[in-house]
Amino acid sequence: MTAPRPPFTAPDIPIRSGSGPLDVVKLGLQDYELMWHQQADIAAARAKDEVTDQLLMLEHPSVYTAGKRTQPEDRPTNGLPVIDVDRGGRITWHGEGQLVCYPIIKLREPVDVVDYVRRIEEALIQVVRQLGVTSAGRIDGRSGVWVPASDGRPDRKIAALGIRLTRGVSMHGLALNCNNTLEYYEHIIPCGIDDAGVTTLSLELGREVTVDECIEPLAAALTDALEGRLIVADHTFGSAPDPCKGLGKRKV
């Protein structure tokens, strides 16, 4: 989304408060609820400077999760359960073949949520474009990374974001669709958006793109973005209504 003001931190300055190493932790397939609680524990320890900043890289078994802005009409029509969580945004799905990354980062003060989100998006855009989806960019009014309409298909989301900040430390994060099924998206209104689609790297590129292939490039790009070596640029190709604007927050 378009930043309403210049960032608090200069674009080429780290947004992280610490200068220690950014640890990349590969966790494989992890239960969503267990990982949610582990995130909270790590974030609490990071707030007290007991651990360093971390990028948790993993996949989840198939699960729907609903952020604080989720509406009743968003919820699945296939009868599967939903986990209500404390991140922003509305409902989404996670499953095998989708790379999930939870950056547990203590942010520089004054904390700038918009700048943090834009840097995360910039890293994702770089990775998706490097892999071959060169048209990927932003839609003003909507978070995440998008592929513009083409060949009779609408604009479609290839990577989603949903974050929470607690005591200046980030939780939750991003999901990059690699070679996952899109079947489960058909039973919800993904992110509360009913006028666009969802896609994967494999579908866009016509070849199998695995989670393992994307872990190292994503870790490198996120590190560069958070350190100020990858500068946020204008990759906007369209605009659309914000699906969370004017909606109250559900209590978790």
Rank of each mutant, 00 (worst) to 15 (best):
N177Y: 07
G197C: 10
I158E: 14
S135M: 10
G141L: 01
L55W: 10
G95F: 06
L27W: 03
G238W: 06
L34P: 00
K68L: 03
N78H: 02
Q38I: 08
A220F: 11
D242C: 10
P7D: 11
G89F: 05
R119V: 11
D115K: 04
Q126V: 12
V25A: 06
Y116K: 09
K48Y: 02
P110V: 00
A220P: 04
E227L: 09
G206P: 00
A240E: 01
L80G: 03
I125M: 12
V24T: 14
K106T: 04
V25K: 07
M171E: 07
Y185E: 04
I231E: 15
R250P: 01
I193P: 00
P241G: 03
N179T: 03
D31K: 10
Q39W: 13
H187Q: 09
V211F: 12
V252D: 03
A160I: 08
E122K: 01
F237G: 02
G228W: 10
E216M: 15
D49L: 13
G228Q: 10
L29Y: 01
T2R: 14
W146V: 07
G162I: 08
P72L: 11
I120N: 05
E59Q: 13
T181L: 11
L29C: 08
E183W: 01
G20K: 08
D86T: 13
V145E: 03
Q30A: 06
C101V: 14
T65N: 01
T223R: 09
A45E: 15
L124M: 12
A136E: 10
I42Y: 11
G152V: 03
L80V: 03
A160M: 11
E208M: 09
P81E: 14
N179M: 04
W36S: 07
H60D: 09
Q54F: 05
P7E: 05
H235T: 08
T134E: 12
P81H: 11
L107N: 12
C178G: 08
I215Y: 14
T77S: 13
T200Y: 00
V211H: 04
R153L: 15
H235G: 09
Q38Y: 10
V82R: 07
